[in-house]
Amino acid sequence: MRNATAHAGSGPVPWLVRGGWFSVATGGAAILIPLVMVALVIGLALASWPAMKAFGPGFLASSHWNPATDRFGAAASLYGTLASSAIAMFLTVPLAFFIAVFLTEFAPSWLRAPVRYAIETLASIPSIIYGMWGLFVLAPMLADPVQPWLRDHFGFIPLFSGPPIGIGMMTAGIILALMILPYMTSILRDVLYLVPPDLRESAYGMGSTSWEVTWRIHRRYAASGIFGAFVLGLGRAIGETMAVTFVIGNNQGIHADLFSPATTIAATLANEFTEASEDLYLSSLFELGLILLLVDMLVVLAGQWWLRSIEKRRVGA
């Protein structure tokens, strides 16, 4: 009442005071996101300019990385990033899907809470712990007996050759898989829970088995969420630094086998920034960083594009 009389003589309250400030504040906060993105790209691009000038597009194609001769190429790191992520996804995708389905369709109710708790705990373990475990437990195990056994029995496949020293691409892939497994499982489980109960009952009501309901209904209904989980997992695998740096062996080379030491962009950056004294060396590392950023963004963009396209030709709800 008091306000009403107070305003009566002073005309309408200005928009900015009545709530406009709120729009301005939220809009201002939101604009930070694209700004940060642009700033990141520009900053990295500026810092990597000397390397770009020196090596041109050949930087991407060359696996030559030698600080002694001042020659740098991204191919080995880029290959390592893609290959280790691919191994991780190859191992994780089916596993995460199976675990999530087990949790939503099969697990007795008393088991669900503890398993869920365990998964969430695993997902929150700092990556350096995974790295240490990988180096001191997993790598020796792979060095003997796993890799020799693989080489003896499957050595005719080029993938399973090379020095069985336990440190290399294979170990990095497995560690990455373990790291993103809980993460992807918990997202997938949430996605599967989103399938409406009626729909699920209806599918079971047709006389479907759990497998058929999962594969034919859940997979389609939750396709976007499932894909989102995979993209998030992949994004994480690509950028993961600490654990991989521990176990991949940091070797600037491209090998067809899984046993050999290799490197990833993130691992190269983590290892070499402190040593980079030369301008060109430092600049090359920045260019690597730029490539990592772009690859990660590309993965997410491709994921979103793919999502939209299935949304368009999507059959059903």
Partner: peptide, 21 residues
Amino acid sequence: VIDLRRRVGMIFQQPTTFPMS
């Protein structure tokens, strides 16, 4: 139960069309 549910169909309150053609 698979065979039972083949023999006993069920229709729900909301249409439960599956996400397909």
